[in-house]
Design a protein around this nucleic acid. Structure first.
Lengths: 312, 312
DNA sequence: CAGGTTGCTGCCGTTTCGGCAACAGCTATA
DNA sequence: TATAGCTGTTGCCGAAACGGCAGCAACCTG
């Protein structure tokens, strides 16, 4: 099922690899063939699509426009293929998800396992990365569904849903703060803290609050792994900060205690956005999984916020 | 700039014409070439795309899926072309509008004239039709922007905006009702009425109200032209019913009087929806005109409803 | 300067595409 | 019922497009 011009696919490969010869290797054709297709394309568009450097090729403005079109075409072709296949029953395909680390502990494995138990034909590709990388992966067409901290609203992506979870401190059971119901940032800063590096979204959520204070605390540890921060907190090294979402099971094990954070009397929220490329229609199977994801996150948002409403 | 497989374009032509030979004539190629491309396409998809009858070809289910994909591809190609051309400055293109008759009296000519005075390069194609035909024209890709009475919300179209205007009675200046500020349906039915045929959306707005009454009135005249109904009302033949939107200038000429309709004490609304094909990104130029249209209609909605709020 | 990379271009065999003419199947009309 | 006109399909063949090979100049790297 390859009824689109080779030039389309060649252009796409060249754009991704940034090199004609690399694209040729990827496509298992001669580099001359790729080169000619690109030249023909540029002639038809009437404008150069790449800037040639000694190192390879870079997109021009027109090239980026064409890249957008080509991505729309190829993604919609994917959707068509998937929908046709699911019509004939013998479906097999892949749902590709890019998300931040908070989801890996419970939300995503639960959902995928549940979906797989109902439909073995659908396979999944999940990649964990930072929030801005999630959005970039969607733009590049490397992921179908993206879950990231919602800081700014990107215009080329569609925000399918926005769920807010409380940000809180994570301490070991023996920690002096562990008996409290909620904590303030000031109370936490009296102890060694495990700070997130700027590549984690938590950094950008907490930094404005910390910057308001006159004295900036010296962090005991800086890390870029949610999991590592969690394990460090469990060993009593210090106070970690996390979204409430990622630590459900751990707090059930009572190794760790999650303390919702209060700032000037009001909760600190972490907004989780679910994103999809705007100029795109998802395959029916992917869309139904997306609906499940939104529903599940909505359910957890409701449940967890209700639980802490009781506490407060 | 034709970098898509001929099979794509051939399929599109065959779908539109419903015949291979007609498509061949349209494309200026031999019918055998078209036939072969369709056969090749069916082989690649692995399923027949058309049902062959002696009269021509009809889409199968898979064929309709491919038609959707092909339309997405071609419309997005259009957008790409338009955006590239507008980048280089020398732009010329067409904005295609399908709308109901109510718009032709003032809204659309004003907007198009205003837009043309600012940008001569953009040309327009406007086609007047019934509400359901407007939606169908969008689905078939024959129009970029559609304006229709919003009765049901079609899932494959995106409702860009929804504006509500008052439905009212239209009578000559000498008509006994002409001195009233508002009228009820009962008051109108005491006189000969000019009734819309089912192909006009007004019929579907008024029919439920009329059906509630025990005695169904005998209409003096039935018509399917907004303009004709307006002229008849001006000649004192009877009471016509129209959306307030279409008759601004006429009521200024004081040939006709527009009387907002009240039903059981509350106004009768006519919802005007602006539609675009959902699986599509509009060219920048088309999109900017769409924004103007939405703003203009919003302005009229605000102004007219405010005017009649004073009256009531 | 040498060895690697890059994109580009004749040359040539293979594949694909399109046009012509003929075929079978169907419908409408006389 | 026969005929004329329409439909899509299929050999045949020339033309165009495509892809592979080898060699070119230009550039970066060590």
């Amino acid at each position: 099922m390859r009824f689109h011009s080779p030039s389309i696919q060649y252009f796409h490969a060249v754009r991704r690899t940034g090199s004609i010869r690399a694209a040729a290797r990827l496509l298992n054709v001669a580099s001359s063939a790729v080169s000619r297709q690109i030249l023909k394309l540029e002639q038809e568009v009437g404008s150069p699509l790449f800037e040639r450097t000694a190192r390879g090729l870079t997109l021009t403005t027109v090239g980026e426009m064409l890249a957008r079109h080509v991505m729309n075409v190829l993604q919609d072709l994917d959707r068509f293929r998937s929908d046709v296949a699911s019509l004939s029953g013998a479906w097999h395909g892949t749902i590709s998800i890019a998300c931040i680390e908070s989801l890996t502990e419970s939300v995503l494995p639960d959902l995928i396992a549940s979906h797989r138990s109902r439909n073995r034909r659908v396979s999944f590709t999940t990649e964990v990365m930072g929030s801005s990388d999630v959005l970039e992966a969607l733009r590049r067409g490397e992921a179908d569904i993206g879950i990231a901290i919602a800081l700014i609203h990107p215009p080329d992506l569609r925000q399918v849903a926005l769920k807010r979870f409380r940000l809180g401190a994570l301490v070991a059971r023996e920690h002096p703060l562990a008996r409290r119901k909620t904590v303030t940032l000031e109370q936490c800063l009296a102890f060694p803290i495990i700070q997130a590096l700027p590549e984690l979204s938590i950094y950008h959520l907490l930094q404005p609050l910390i910057a308001q204070r006159s004295e900036t605390p010296e962090p005991a540890i800086q890390a870029n792994s949610i999991d590592l921060m969690r394990e460090l907190a469990a060993r009593g090294v210090g106070v970690a900060f996390q979204t409430q979402l990622g630590i459900i099971r751990l707090s059930r094990d009572a190794q760790l205690v999650f303390l919702p954070l209060d700032n000037a009397g009001s909760p600190v929220w972490s907004d989780l956005g679910i994103y999809v490329r705007a100029e795109r229609t998802l395959p029916a199977v992917t869309d139904s999984f997306l609906q499940e994801l939104v529903r599940e996150l909505g359910e957890r948002e409701r449940r967890e916020n209700a639980a802490y409403a009781q506490v407060v």
